[in-house]
Write a protein that binds this DNA or RNA. Sequence first.
DNA 1: GCGTGTCAACCAACTAGTTGGTTAGACTGT
DNA 2: ACAGTCTAACCAACTAGTTGGTTGACACGC
Lengths: 176, 176
Amino acid sequence: MAVVRDREATKAKLLEAALAEFAKHGIAGARVDRIAAKAGCNKAMIYAYFGSKEDLFDEVLRIQIARVVEAVPITPDDLPGYAGRLFDVYQQQPELLSLAGYHRLENGFEAISKAEGDAHTEKVAAVAEAQRSGVLPQDFDAEELLALVVHMSILAFSTPVATRELVVRAVARLLS
Amino acid sequence: MAVVRDREATKAKLLEAALAEFAKHGIAGARVDRIAAKAGCNKAMIYAYFGSKEDLFDEVLRIQIARVVEAVPITPDDLPGYAGRLFDVYQQQPELLSLAGYHRLENGFEAISKAEGDAHTEKVAAVAEAQRSGVLPQDFDAEELLALVVHMSILAFSTPVATRELVVRAVARLLS
DNA sequence: GCGTGTCAACCAACTAGTTGGTTAGACTGT
DNA sequence: ACAGTCTAACCAACTAGTTGGTTGACACGC
């Protein structure tokens, strides 16, 4: 098999391997040797392309968050559906939930990526607007309401009995 | 200063130091040397008393879970209050939330301690009984309802805007 | 002296990160 | 088309430091 020298392809392979490794073992538990082996290239490539193990993690997380933010736009007039779609994404890509979980545990709330922060601000504004126009109940603060909905969407993180229907029904009940 | 030779006291110090270390860094990120140093004793003690790093983690988690299970008995006729009390415990001892989070991420749902499992079964039964007697709505399965309540109690895991009042109100809304 | 608790010193295995040198493939002038 | 040149992707082998875990000697109370 001919050796392919393709910067972007190699970076993509490393990112894919890193996603699996970090999701399974967290930052501290991940091994750069395993990532390189799985990507089928040398460990030095990680340092050439990403700088360090932590930088690689940050990049992987950034990409995954961006993917979700893009794939699941908020629908303030249908928050149960929004939670359901988030739930779907987490079911299809459980790595994201693990990744975010490890990131939260190892870095706390402070180290939230800018992309996520901006998207969050926009979503709070959208919820607040929907509250003003009467589509959503006003007895929860916009930020709190969004937090509740998002938290419900990660129900699968805390229990194996989580189902999409349960999440949707629970959010609907919160809004009643 | 005289050296104190007290098996139980040393074990307790190690457990306390291990709790802090594991909560902060997880299993993979925790360092036995740091645990021993913080406990003010040699790391050989960890292996004499607990066998291995993982065994020590298991013991720490077991103790913390038992503490919560005992400190916060379920009150099926007041699930908002139950969630609130769980929230309080997690606020007072954030280590438990981290510990459980790491355990869940690194071992999945399979490796749940027997103590937790038994307590859970009892709680589901208590919720089901309350549903039969009409104290709780019956449109959620007992297991699902308990999962929702417990999940709400760990709201602080997913958002910094979590407050006790928010958790209590959200659970109350779920039951309406 | 004896059993128990303690620890400094130790080790083999492993870790993230580096380096010197190699080579595929694109570009060049002819 | 084609030999010569250069750039950048690539990696085996290495370094320096860290890791979980062990052990033999010592300290203490009886």
